[in-house]
Write a protein that binds this DNA or RNA. Sequence first.
DNA 1: GTTAGTTTGAAACCATTGTTTCAAACACAT
DNA 2: ATGTGTTTGAAACAATGGTTTCAAACTAAC
Lengths: 226, 226
Amino acid sequence: MAGSSKNREDTKTRLMEAAGEVFAQYGYRASTVRQICQRARTNLGSVNYHFRDKKGLYAAIFGQSLKLALTRYPPDLGLTDRATPEEKLRAYIHSLLLRLMGEGLPAWHGKLLAQEIAEPSGAIDEVMEYSIRPLYTYLAAIVREMTNEEKPAGGEESDRTFLTAFSIVGQCLHHHIGRHMIEALRPRGFDPTRIEQITDHITCFSLGGIRALTAQAPSEQGGLNS
Amino acid sequence: MAGSSKNREDTKTRLMEAAGEVFAQYGYRASTVRQICQRARTNLGSVNYHFRDKKGLYAAIFGQSLKLALTRYPPDLGLTDRATPEEKLRAYIHSLLLRLMGEGLPAWHGKLLAQEIAEPSGAIDEVMEYSIRPLYTYLAAIVREMTNEEKPAGGEESDRTFLTAFSIVGQCLHHHIGRHMIEALRPRGFDPTRIEQITDHITCFSLGGIRALTAQAPSEQGGLNS
DNA sequence: GTTAGTTTGAAACCATTGTTTCAAACACAT
DNA sequence: ATGTGTTTGAAACAATGGTTTCAAACTAAC
């Protein structure tokens, strides 16, 4: 029960900080344990001691960042339940973009998730069930509110709702996944309001998209028509 | 000048076929030369002989698939110049989805491009300039047709046009990049009409989005950016 | 058949990277 | 101060993967 004072926490903490940065930026596979240790100013033995192996380190980071992201950037961003669906959609998009394009610890989760979507690490089986699916079902509910669609009984969303949610998430994710391309295609200096601009764009674009879909095939429950 | 008959072409061809499949599926970095050789029923020496190294093999594949994709799936999909912008947009989306979700050789290019966007291989410097940028400028022109925006003089599209093009491409790419997630989230058997369904969805959604953006900040000199 | 150039197969080489090991350094209770 | 359990540092190990090498196999011309 000895040796549990400052320095142990120090090394473990430094390791997690370094690992978060590196995993978020390069993804699980492309990150190396040595790279992380170097950044944390420690060595391989510490990883083995504190986290057993690379997978263990990754899992620890993922779990921690998931918890943190849910408190710092909840999907509703602190809206009340009586907010309009439009407000909820904007909050959702904003929250997702903050997690994808933000800096530092609270943004790790989004970036890790994006990496998992593009190339599942295999280090955590529950990623899909406990991280991705909830995000989708929550978004699907917002969409259904706007299209006046019934909540399907079996839990399976309609194809239209699913594709719509996919369109919205796809737009957001692309701004992270394609960041190298964006930089090359259209270099721009650092702009702290950029995330808001993109939020406005995707929100407006998606609301228009949803309206168009609803007009094209109105919901059976007597949706509005053009 | 000898030995240039059947078997040489055979091995080289088999190598390129195998490499195309593997690179398109796993990306440059995650693919291994040994994996490719095994699939091509040859060995490492052949790669060194015919293509010098992994980069050379990749570059050969990329160039070939680019040429093929442009003839098989041109961005206008054979539309006449007098087609409406809406028709052109649908053709563009359809073409992109075919290249991303299709099977076999003609679909290599889209998948390779998606991988390059997500994680530039560094094996080809010209990817951005000669493969990605043209796709964007073409799409931007379609968008401008619909928003009645002037073609900007300096070649720099307006931010609104850029973000719109990005929203459209992002939706399409997501259906490829997130394919593992889709399968886990919503498993579905093989459906040959799926690409058409998604094309319809993204087209309708995006047309609605463009209308909404135009309504919000009408006509020329795009509205709300800094 | 001989010969010269081409192509292939097998092995080795070398750098990278995840993992393990173990002794030294350390912290703390006694 | 001593002893005990904890933590760290350095090295070694094993597996993977890109690259190189070179002799054997092959092809075509003579």
